[in-house]
Design a protein around this nucleic acid. Structure first.
Lengths: 372, 372
DNA sequence: TTGTAGGCGTTATCAG
DNA sequence: CTGATAACGCCTACAA
């Protein structure tokens, strides 16, 4: 019988030091079955290709062939083996399989923060695409740190066939060194010599700034993200460029961290900047900023217009709902995974960069400049 | 290639899941460059304990001992080996290690839906605790289905040392059979004979219903979650009980799915129910419901009070911010992981249930009953 | 304390 | 088309 497999995602921690195992404790619960001690209902855990071989009356290597590359074995033995496998409730031992081949049918995805909704859609997209091709997604978190990110990446490298780096914080050289080892695809950043998937900020930002200008705003504040963030730099460039083009004055503000809290903290600067419109590095910042501004008695958008970035889950929960420049995150995740799998299967094109379009999502948090 | 078009259903081990033909690529970049170059550079991925043994001038088994159980080796050889390991940039091969021992230093966590914010904090908690003890968290999704959940669980069982089941949908017997195999901890549900971590709904619900009663509401609607959800049943019971106690009439409404969309869809029923206050199985439902109601021109909370469950990320983004019964999700995740690790290390108490408190978080979406 | 010799479950290489 | 047999990298009695 065929079993249906659900989509899978795995998360791995940002640990690192694995030079010693845990305290000396023997695994008790999983007793060795050598004495046939534990024996649940269905054929318990461990039947091997040897068991199948015995039942089917063939050689283990034939079983291996039948199970891993259908076609290299006669139809009748194939049937025989499959039947035996089903009877014994056989399941491949992934470790044993990985040992000789090095292949794990697993792709790693590293994000800066598991609880940052920005990455949800990326995760979902990568997972979906991987799943279709029978790959398991392993998710790791880097805690917004380039150093731990590299550690995690190396660790993941040893268990995954390839890596997707979403908004990586480590430097280009490290990424390239990773890529020299196994296939790597980068999302939200462009790295020379490495395949990348990036949103093309131009269009979305252009629309946003044009909208701002059309609404009579003369001065715009841009709240930047983390200093190491490639995307933040690109967005800032894009905003500058678009503002110049539209004749809007623009100033740059720094945030402490790209979160709701960071948004709250930057409210004071926004206020004293004298800008009537604000664009933030991401939606989280925008939401926090909006909350703080509203708490201070300001009306959004009548007194200040706010535009975020990404269109994350929950961006439309706010009042007014957040205007934002949407990045097609799920598409990015899908594209990156597809790219990686192609690389894995040898259909590796050169390391080209893939661009996906951004667009302005006009909602309630932006509007006319306040009357002067 | 893939035989079925449905992305989630594909063949697993038993019928040969290896669908890709001529792979055999991707490991090329690796081989070169490892010999003559600088040793300070990040070494390639492939040094083994044999390499270390050679460098340190000892036997591989000594290296193994030194690296896996410090103490069983002389201090000086220990130092020697560690130095060599560092030089060679050695990393254990988890597969090779797992093969003889069965231990993977990995714990599995299964959730119903990766994109459901309810689980974020659980994930984060479990991850944090596992991390401290040098365990890797592997996350799997079950797509809200008991059947696929079981499949996924079994699969995970073969690669993880133990399992955490968050809001499992499968039946008790299956969970117990899993537990008979390896350590399992359940979150958000009580299963006889299996260690569980559950929020004690009493307190939070009591506070919520008292608040509702105190605000003059006479009729409350409870929007239930998935039929298989143990938590939904508990919450419904708790609400009934509290309502009886407080003299509030309560009716039960069904939702199609525990999401924002499900919340929108149930709005019609809520309206026709004549209730002036609503409690929903979770925050997502509450948010969707609120959106739909507001879209229909109703004022929240003046015309209808809404109270959610969980206090997920974004619950305070809404206008008005959502009143909700908070479950200490991160604490649940931490407690469950700690429990599992204890089990793994033999400090296994009996399968006791751990309760964590819930509390009402009063925000803007609930208030006085409308004047009649 | 350290070395020796199997073995874990699969896959890959070669013969037959 | 199928059967032996050697890796894969690590762990663990058992000796030395």
């Amino acid at each position: 019988m065929t079993e249906s497999r659900a989509s899978r995602v795995s998360a791995i921690a940002a640990d690192g030091s694995d030079l010693h195992a845990g305290s000396a404790v023997s695994a008790e619960v999983n007793s060795a079955a050598s004495s046939g001690a534990k024996k649940g209902r269905t054929g318990k855990a461990n039947s091997t290709i040897y068991d199948i071989a015995k039942v089917a009356g063939v050689n283990p290597s034939t079983v291996s062939r039948a199970l891993s590359k259908p076609g290299r074995v006669s139809a009748k033995t194939q049937k025989l083996i499959e039947k035996a496998a089903a009877e014994l409730n056989y399941q491949v031992n992934p470790f044993a399989r990985a040992l000789p081949t090095g292949r794990t049918n697993t792709i790693g995805l590293i994000v800066a923060d598991i609880t940052n909704p920005t990455f949800f859609d990326i995760i979902r997209g990568a997972q979906a695409t991987g799943n279709v091709r029978d790959y398991t997604l392993v998710l790791a978190e880097s805690a917004e740190s380039g150093a731990t990110e590299l550690t995690v990446a190396r660790r993941l490298m040893s268990t995954a066939d390839g890596l997707i780096l979403a908004s990586p914080r480590m430097n280009d050289a490290d990424i390239r060194s990773l890529f020299a080892d196994k296939p790597v695809v980068v999302i939200n950043r462009e790295v020379e010599g490495v395949p990348c998937v990036i949103p093309d900020v131009r269009k979305g930002i252009g629309e946003a700034v044009r909208s701002i200008a059309a609404n009579g705003h003369k001065k715009l504040a841009f709240v930047a993200g983390p200093a190491q963030s490639w995307m933040s730099a690109r967005r800032w460039e894009g905003v500058q460029e678009a503002c110049e083009w539209s004749g809007v004055e623009v100033i740059r503000l720094e945030s402490t961290k790209p979160t709701v809290d960071g948004g709250r903290q930057v409210a004071r600067d926004v206020l004293s900047s004298g800008a009537s419109a604000v664009m933030t590095y991401n939606d989280l910042l925008a939401i926090g900023l909006m909350q703080e501004l509203q708490a201070a008695g300001l009306d959004i958008p009548d007194q200040i217009s706010i535009i975020g970035f990404d269109d994350i889950f929950g961006a439309d929960f706010t009042t007014p709902p957040l205007t934002t420049v949407r990045s097609p995150l799920e598409a990015c995740g899908k594209a990156a995974a597809a790219r990686l799998l192609d690389l894995l299967h040898g259909n590796g094109e050169l390391a080209r960069t893939l661009q996906v379009e951004t667009q302005l999502v006009l909602r309630g948090s932006s509007g006319r400049s306040p009357a002067r």
